[in-house]
Computed example of a mutant assay.
Amino acid sequence: MREVRWASEEGDGIEHLTFDARPDGFFVESAVVGQRYGKAYGLYYTVRCDSQWRVLHTFLKVAGGGELELHGDGAGHWRDGHGLTLTALEGCVDIDIAATPFTNTLPIRRLQLAPGERQPIAVAYIGTPDLQVTRVDQAYTCIDRDREYRYDGIFRNFSANLRVDDDGLVIDYPTLFRRLQSVR
């Protein structure tokens, strides 16, 4: 199990994440303290993926606020915590939680892009702190395999080159997040 921390480049936010690679997939548990659109929040979330980095389950809880639970089948079909089918997310394999650079790891690892290869994808975008889920278009391009990727938030006309470590976890996300030194 690994532990990493990121600091927000936009304010006083910080995230503490545990990353556990298991024989049947990957499990992440994290706590984020941040600020978005002038509103401070605390967020706890978990993400469980299969061995091919497809999201099977995520749970999010805002301190003093709402909760969100999503179940994916790894093939782009989603249900909420009550078992209701979420047709608006049809075809989305990945999630993107606005408060964290971690969810960039999901398509980076799942897509296995070759250098120079670009892949547009639809993702289930989870806003924070409101936990509203929408389908958005993004793209990833491999610049240096297992080291650097270009993220294009097509839905908001934003791009950034992301440096990643051997596990695909973001080291540097210019203007948004930076990894902190490991706690010893």
Rank of each mutant, 00 (worst) to 15 (best):
G76F: 00
S8C: 05
T58D: 02
V32T: 13
Y173R: 02
R178A: 10
R145C: 10
R2D: 03
A31M: 05
L106D: 03
R150M: 13
A31G: 04
G83A: 04
V55K: 00
D166N: 05
L180Q: 14
R5Q: 15
R179E: 09
S159D: 06
F155I: 01
G91F: 03
I143N: 14
K61I: 04
D167R: 04
R150T: 13
R79D: 02
C92L: 00
V183S: 15
F102I: 02
Q52H: 15
T128N: 04
R156P: 03
V170F: 03
F102Y: 10
I154Y: 06
I14N: 06
T103V: 04
E67Y: 06
G65D: 07
D137Q: 15
R109N: 08
Y173S: 04
A75D: 12
S30W: 02
H57E: 04
G65L: 07
I143P: 09
K61A: 15
R147H: 14
T105L: 02
G91H: 05
G127D: 14
T100E: 07
G34H: 08
M1F: 05
F27D: 09
Y140W: 11
Y125N: 11
L17C: 07
G72Q: 02
R79S: 07
L56T: 00
P129Y: 11
L169R: 01
Q132E: 15
C92Q: 00
Q52Y: 12
T85Y: 07
E69F: 10
R147S: 13
R147N: 12
A124P: 10
A21R: 02
V62G: 09
F155V: 02
G91Y: 02
R110Y: 00
L180F: 07
H82R: 11
A40I: 05
E10P: 01
W53C: 01
G116Q: 14
V28P: 01
W53F: 14
K39T: 09
Q35P: 00
R184M: 07
A7M: 06
Y173H: 07
G116I: 15
D152Y: 12
S182K: 13
E29M: 05
G11E: 08
L43Q: 12
C92P: 01
V32P: 08
R163Q: 08
T87Q: 12
I171L: 12
G66E: 14
R110I: 00
A7S: 10
V47F: 06
A75C: 09
D146N: 12
L86I: 15
L84T: 04
G76L: 03
R178I: 10
Y140Q: 06
L89F: 09
Q181A: 15
L180S: 06
W6M: 03
F26W: 08
L68A: 03
D166E: 11
P129S: 10
S159L: 07
P107C: 01
V32Y: 12
R135N: 14
C49K: 03
R163A: 08
H82S: 11
A99C: 09
G11Q: 07
D167P: 00
H16L: 09
I97R: 01
Q112G: 09
L169G: 00
